[in-house]
Design a protein around this nucleic acid. Structure first.
Lengths: 166, 166
DNA sequence: GTCGGTGCAAACTATTTGCAATCGA
DNA sequence: TCGATTGCAAATAGTTTGCACCGAC
């Protein structure tokens, strides 16, 4: 199911009409984000809306700069500072995950509508392969019990060479 | 077995004599580092020696700034730039591992004389618990085979609450 | 109207780099 | 000797922050 949706931006007396199709999980994420903002007495702004949509449109591990470039290309006026501030909020309400792939900066991925997964990272071409393994999850739970540790999140990254780079 | 060892530093016409005890694994690491430097036609300098020792003295996950502070306290003249440059070399020759615990900077740990291990990280007090699980290693190998992926390294971090913070 | 939000530029943190002086082989 | 290494300070990359203005409720 797709939902047709429009955003109106008024800037320098020019209206920007942006029509996008929004899938169900984006719609659900929006709802959750709205609830989160309400709970925290924060305001719903068009910038936060735009960023959430861009994040859920990207089925990839993006960084803050990439979002900024995307917005500039599309002539959508959202500043770098707002991107960082909004990503923090999205991480706080657990719609987005902040991850480090061993680079000098952070990447993000949306997690709503996605199963938890881990990553295989190719040291040669940089390709990132997502995988999920049930046994692995079980084993980690077992390890946490051993150490009396209450797990909240985890991240397994396997670095090496992908099939085509070997 | 401990080895008594001395380093002489000549700086501003003052000799600094630093006597340290060096355990076997540090001695072995030094040897490996020396070989690495030889292979690469790089020079053995007192700074590189000092940094290697400090790294192997620390049984913890330190960062570059902590090393610098340590050297300043002990009045050992080694610059920040040299610390970063030498850590890169130690990572390259696989005596040291560069890890990210989700902070804005990197940490390092020496790996020689240590079994591979993974980390439980307490979100409350910041404590880092190291663990090793054989089944986990096996399972990861199996996953790599599934994806035709040649593993070179991996890192599993489980974030949550340690026993005393729950 | 009242705060909270935004954009901008400046600040800040971690890290890297250019360069002249110094040092190791 | 001669190129590699060092320390310094400046540059860079990523991110955060102060502040004046703007906008959601």
């Amino acid at each position: 199911m797709k939902v047709i949706q429009s955003i109106n931006l008024l800037q320098n007396n020019i209206f920007y009409y942006i029509f996008t199709t929004m899938d169900e999980s984006t719609a659900k994420a929006k709802e959750l984000f709205r609830d989160f903002l309400n709970r925290k007495d924060l305001k719903k702004t068009k910038e936060r809306d735009i960023i959430l949509e861009a994040v859920f449109d990207t089925h990839d591990h993006f960084d803050a700069e990439e979002l900024l470039i995307l917005f500039r290309q599309k002539k959508i006026p959202v500043s770098r500072a707002t991107i960082y501030r909004t990503l923090d909020l999205l991480v706080e309400c657990r719609l987005v995950k902040k991850i480090s792939f061993g680079e000098a900066h952070f990447r993000y991925e949306h997690i709503f509508g996605h199963e938890h997964h881990d990553h295989l990272i190719c040291n040669q071409c940089g390709q990132i392969i997502e995988f999920y393994n049930k046994d692995l999850e079980e084993l980690q739970k077992k390890i946490c019990r051993q150490y009396d540790f209450k797990e909240q999140d985890h991240s397994l990254r396997i670095f090496g060479l992908c099939k085509s780079c070997q």
